[in-house]
Design a protein around this nucleic acid. Structure first.
Lengths: 239, 239
DNA sequence: CGGTAGGTTGACCACCTTCAAGGACCGTGG
DNA sequence: CCACGGTCCTTGAAGGTGGTCAACCTACCG
């Protein structure tokens, strides 16, 4: 399940995504202590679950995750989709227990960073300290955006925003800015966006009819980014 | 606008709410350095605004705030209501600029804690470090809950959850567990809950008809907590 | 006392959900 | 190779929840 690492953070090609930049050599060395082990997570299995003890943050090295919470009555909500270079597990810090499930949507590998080690090292290395704060703050700001989406947007706007966000993040990772292979089902997308899977499907079809995208199963090609952007938020447009 | 403090954290009656517990005397002394000044914020004015430079977190000493973000097209979303003992400003850490507005809903006073001072002291005082991490993590978890609410709940469930959450937080601050004086308008409540103000109003009326609450303007009395709880999430109830 | 902001209530309607049926793809096993 | 089952997806028709629009009311404040 977990195994020793073979690539140090200092050599990792994802370093700019999950670690601070501009470190001095001796700081870099301390950072390399951070990742205790790697862990492979098979598609469909969980990295951690609601209720489990929290003791580490995870940096995604490869693969794709969703995080979701479940209410007592069984309703659940996908709170995010995470890809390479992103950090998951922040929810567990408050009460030393995770409050959501992290499920791999494809075979994945994560770097395990024991939280007490993070705390310890960030007391010595100010840039790591600040980096951690920024990561948490970024997550808070991201969730504000999701609240705006869920609170004010219509179905088409939500789906457009979802696609744009996804393709943008993939692009910063070196992938195409117009091709997406969805790693999640329509139901998972809908759950995240506060819509039913049928609505997501219909909206995809509608975008395709309008010539903004092509959809074949999970393969989406974006034909007209600007049209999508216009959908999510009229730029100078009507109030 | 801002003025020297007259009550040290070590003497503050809100200490358990916004500061770590179980500090050693010398740590307490360092904590007292945290709050540089106090600042009064008049009702209807902002503590900070989207786009302003971030350099401090704020602990609410008295009063009541809302935070809200605004999309380019003018739509906005209330992301939370904050009361005494709670910390605001976390959104600003990522990019050194605030991304939301913090508006006082009644005359308020906050403790200004310069963020570089927080960082510095938390490098020496591990319990402060952990406390900060917990505060940020708690905010992330809270927002997960809001996402669940916005993504899956019906109007009645949302309003019930809102009232219960409010009264619960007031109760931990020593107020009644059945009396609430709302500090925000129906429109602000609706915005937060992803509903229109008319829907909030109607839902209040419906709850009143059902004998669960009484409403007179902004004064709400909760008559049947359990009924409200049953609304938000059927306990063992129907799936 | 009049103006204004905030709140309530009603009628109608739109968007999304619900329910249902059919179809495409994938892995497995014959 | 094809048949088979299962999951995932698409599309249609009908219905409901909450939105929209509008009128009226109340409290508050100069």
């Amino acid at each position: 399940m977990s195994h020793p690492i073979n690539v140090a953070c200092s050599n990792c090609n994802l370093r700019e995504l999950c670690m601070p930049v501009g470190l001095k050599p001796e700081e870099l060395q301390r950072i390399d202590e951070l990742v205790a082990t790697r862990r492979k997570v098979k598609r469909g299995t969980t990295l951690f679950r609601n209720g489990e003890r929290f003791d580490a943050l995870y940096a995604i090295r490869t693969g794709f995750f969703k995080t979701c919470i479940t209410a007592e009555d069984g309703r659940d909500q996908v709170t995010g989709f995470q890809m390479a270079g992103e950090i998951i597990g922040l929810d567990g810090i408050v009460n030393d227990h995770h409050t959501c499930d992290a499920v791999a949507l494809e075979d994945a590998e994560v770097c395990v960073m024991p939280f007490d080690k993070i705390s310890e090292i960030s007391r010595d290395v100010a840039s790591l300290q600040h980096h951690l704060h920024r990561i948490m703050s970024r997550e808070i700001v991201r969730e504000h955006g999701v609240m705006l989406l869920l609170g004010t947007m219509h179905a088409e706007e939500r789906v457009a925003a979802f696609l744009l966000n996804l393709v943008q993040r993939l692009h910063t990772r070196g992938f195409s800015r117009s091709e997406v292979v969805l790693r999640m089902t329509r139901e998972e997308i809908g759950n995240y966006l506060g819509l039913k899977l049928e609505t997501v499907s219909r909206t995809f079809s509608k975008f395709a009819e309008m010539g903004m995208i092509t959809v074949r199963h999970r393969h989406v090609r974006i034909l007209d980014v600007d049209a999508l952007k216009r959908l999510v938020g009229p730029p100078g447009g009507a109030a």
